[in-house]
Computed example of a mutant assay.
Amino acid sequence: MRRDLIYFRKSVWSLRDGINSLLRDETPLISNEVKVFLRDVYDHVVQVIDSIENQREMVYSLYDMYMSALSNRMNEVMKVLTIIATIFIPLTFIAGIYGMNFNPEASRWNMPELSWPWGYPAVMVLMLILGLLMVVYFKKKRWL
């Protein structure tokens, strides 16, 4: 529609210029009686130009509104993806730490919970609690 309105606007502007030159120029081919009608046509052309400008502004406004709605939708998607990433990043960190091969007998600074019988379930429960706490926090903030 924008392209059509621009094309139509160019056509009507050239028509307005042509009629205006016919009204200004003194030529024996155009009598005063015809000039009255040409003035009427000129007024109609000006009204058409105003209408085209209004239509063009409406099309641009609708396009801007569409782009804003599209941007808002994209922002909502990005917000959800960010929340999901925020929840899983600390869990991935914990899983990465415990995924390393430590030998608790080699050094006292190694993880002693690796040799605990309940070490694996304890880390899983810790990760579950951490994930649930973040979900509760996001719900409380009304981000989720």
Rank of each mutant, 00 (worst) to 15 (best):
M58E: 15
L81H: 07
L114K: 13
V80M: 09
R56Q: 12
K141W: 05
M74H: 13
L70Y: 14
D25R: 13
S11R: 15
L70A: 12
V46M: 05
R9W: 08
Y42T: 00
W118Q: 12
Y120P: 10
V34L: 05
D17Q: 12
A69F: 13
L128S: 13
N72V: 10
F37G: 06
L128I: 07
T86H: 03
Q55F: 12
M100P: 02
I83Y: 05
R142G: 04
A85L: 06
D43G: 01
A85D: 07
S51P: 03
M1F: 08
I30C: 01
G18R: 12
I129A: 09
I94W: 08
N54P: 04
K35Q: 02
W143E: 12
E57S: 14
Y120E: 14
D40R: 01
F93G: 11
G99T: 02
Y66R: 15
Y7R: 14
L130M: 12
N32S: 09
L29F: 06
E33C: 01
A85I: 04
N54C: 13
M127N: 10
L29T: 09
Y63R: 14
I129Q: 00
T27R: 07
M127W: 01
H44A: 05
V46K: 08
V45M: 04
L91G: 03
Y137I: 04
Y137H: 07
I87K: 02
Y120I: 14
I84F: 03
R56D: 13
L81N: 11
R16Q: 09
W118M: 14
W116V: 04
F102Y: 11
V80R: 10
N75E: 10
V41M: 06
V48N: 08
V45T: 06
E113Q: 09
I83C: 05
S51Y: 10
L70Q: 14
V41Y: 03
K10Q: 11
Y137Q: 05
L144W: 02
L126Q: 11
L70W: 10
I83S: 04
M111A: 11
G96D: 03
Q55N: 14
M58L: 15
V12D: 02
I6M: 07
F93W: 07
L133I: 07
Y7L: 14
V125F: 04
A69I: 13
N103E: 08
R24P: 02
V34G: 00
R142I: 00
L130V: 11
A69Q: 15
A122Q: 06
M65S: 15
Y60G: 05
E76R: 09
I52D: 05
E105L: 10
V136G: 00
V41D: 02
I83F: 02
F93P: 01
S31Y: 02
V46Q: 06
Y66P: 05
Q47N: 07
F93N: 04
P28I: 05
V80A: 10
N101P: 03
E105H: 11
I129L: 08
L130R: 06
I89Y: 10
R9A: 10
W143F: 11
K79V: 07
F138C: 02
R16L: 08
F138D: 01
A69K: 15
D40A: 00
R142P: 00
I49M: 06
P28T: 04
P28N: 06
F37C: 00
S61M: 13
H44C: 06
M124E: 12
